Amino acid sequence: MVDVSVVVGVHAHPDRLIASLESLRQQRGNLRWECLIVANGGFQPDQHCANLLQADPRFRLLECLQPGLTAALALGCSEARGALIARLDVGDQMAPERLERQLQAYTQHPDLVLATSDVEICGPAWEHLRTDSQAAATGVPMRVDTVPPEQGIAIDIPHHASVMFSRAAYEAVGGYRTAFYFGQDWDLWYRLSSHGTFVHLPETLTRVRLFSDGLSSRHWREQRKIAKLSLACHVARSRGQPETEMLQKAATIRPSPQHQSPLPWDGRRAEGAYFIAEALRRNRDHRCHRYFREALRHGFWKPQVWIRASQGLILWVKTMVI
């Protein structure tokens, strides 16, 4: 008997996966959980990761033959045995009380279909960047399909890795849709919104790490396009109109083919490093200079990086003098 199935998609970085799995093993309470780790892209666990997977039978390693996170998540959810499904991304961590607190919300509110919480956004070495929360969050479930469809839903979901949702509701709405290779989460949230209540717990239950080579860092442009199409589908459904055109457009948004001989610089990685560096600089954290160096190495032609890197260097020098 399983209370919660945690679904994680992975295609690389077994060292980052270990941090996530260890946070699962530290969950408090007497709840019964399983973790479905869905590998694609030729993922191979290193020895430490393999030992961890073998040591705990609650971990189940599955192989997805289709590329992309959406396909991996769909497979994991189809194999889930729990009445509830929780998400976690590789490299992120759950607070020890996360599953217990979210499960408690479902126990108290039978009409609940999705629970989320505050999320701490961190850099690769757990440097604090910001905390995503909602000022009006009360911890009380609410209907979120109460605003005009053009405005989406009446709640923001801070991060895909923060949610726990009802498996029955997930299956009722058709689950993750493979047309959405990037940003599959909001398409699902919109469809779940008409099936019950959502709740935002005003406490930090998930810590998310951003990496310069991560999916969100490299493919934020594609995610923005997908977000607009997800909303357009939501609006069309509310009007009783077909989604066919939007789904066809979404299906064309895929990653570009990898070059056989990669260049020594990478503009998209530079953007990811710059985002982390600038967040740290705004926090007056001198560790920003490390990521500015990475951004300059991969995107030396970008003037904004040079300007902000100079400001970061001044901050670093002041810190060293003090």
Rank of each mutant, 00 (worst) to 15 (best):
A168V: 11
C49E: 01
P57A: 12
H13Q: 13
L315Y: 10
H234M: 11
L75K: 10
M1R: 02
L205I: 09
P124D: 03
D111C: 11
D111S: 15
H109Q: 13
L53Q: 00
Q304L: 14
D132P: 01
V7F: 02
N51A: 12
K249W: 04
L17H: 09
R58F: 04
D56G: 05
Q108L: 15
G272M: 11
A12N: 13
A55Y: 04
D156L: 12
N283C: 15
Q223N: 12
F300E: 13
R254P: 09
Q104F: 08
Q104R: 13
D46P: 02
I121Q: 09
L99M: 07
Q44L: 14
L84M: 05
V208Y: 02
S261K: 15
A55N: 08
R282Y: 12
R167F: 01
P257M: 11
G240K: 04
S162D: 07
S78Q: 13
L229Y: 09
E97R: 08
A39V: 08
L210I: 10
A172F: 00
D46V: 04
D213M: 04
S230N: 14
W265G: 05
L53C: 02
Q54C: 08
C35N: 06
H219M: 07
Q151G: 07
G91Q: 00
W189K: 00
L88M: 10
Q27I: 00
C49D: 01
Q248R: 13
G139N: 07
E120Y: 00
T131P: 01
V38G: 06
V321E: 10
P262T: 14
E278K: 15
S216F: 05
C77D: 01
A168Q: 14
F275M: 14
G174V: 03
A154D: 15
C77K: 06
R28W: 04
A115K: 09
R177E: 12
H286I: 12
V317M: 11
Q66T: 05
L53T: 05
F180K: 05
E97I: 01
E203C: 08
G139F: 06
Y170V: 05
P96A: 09
R28M: 10
S310M: 14
T252I: 03
S166P: 08
I37Q: 05
S261Q: 15
R284N: 15
A179R: 09
Y190Q: 02
G41F: 10
E278W: 14
D185C: 04
Q26M: 12
I157T: 02
